[in-house]
Simulated scan of single mutants.
Amino acid sequence: MTQRPIDTGSARTDLTTHLAMHSLFLKNKGGRRLELRLANLEGTRLRGFDLSQATLLACNLSQTDLEGGKFRETDLANSLFIGANLKHCDFTRANLRGARFYKTDLAQARLDGSDLRVGNMTLHRKGAGGTEVVSREFVTDLSFCNLEEASLEDAVVRKVRLRGVNMRNANLSGADFSESDLQGVVLLGARMQGANFLHADIKDATFTVNDTTRRLFQGLPAFTEHLNNLAEIDRIVAAHEEWVESGGKAGTRADFAGRKMKGVDLRGRELSTISFRGADLTGAQLGHAKLAASDFGGANLAYADLSGTDLRGAGFEGATLRHTVLEAANMTDLQLRGGGALPVRLHDAAVEWVDFSGAQIPPERLKGVKLRDCTLPDQVTP
Rank of each mutant, 00 (worst) to 15 (best):
V354N: 03
R97L: 01
K203D: 12
N85E: 06
D234K: 14
L306I: 08
R235N: 13
D201S: 09
E179K: 05
N78T: 11
D14S: 14
A349P: 07
A359N: 03
H88A: 09
S180D: 03
R110H: 03
F71T: 03
G113C: 12
T131I: 15
S151I: 05
N330S: 13
V160S: 09
I236L: 15
E245D: 10
A304S: 15
K87N: 10
T55C: 04
H288N: 14
T74L: 07
G247S: 08
R365D: 04
R72A: 13
R158E: 12
E67D: 11
E225I: 00
R4F: 07
L346M: 13
A77H: 05
A284R: 10
S275Q: 10
D355S: 07
N120L: 08
A289P: 04
L376K: 13
G308D: 05
E73H: 14
D348Q: 13
L46W: 06
R235T: 14
E232S: 12
A328G: 01
D265K: 14
R72V: 15
A39F: 05
L96H: 06
G297S: 15
N166V: 09
A99S: 15
A20K: 13
A302L: 00
R168S: 11
L51T: 04
M167S: 14
A257D: 09
G98S: 08
M331K: 06
E137P: 03
K367T: 10
S23E: 15
P5F: 08
G184S: 03
G127A: 09
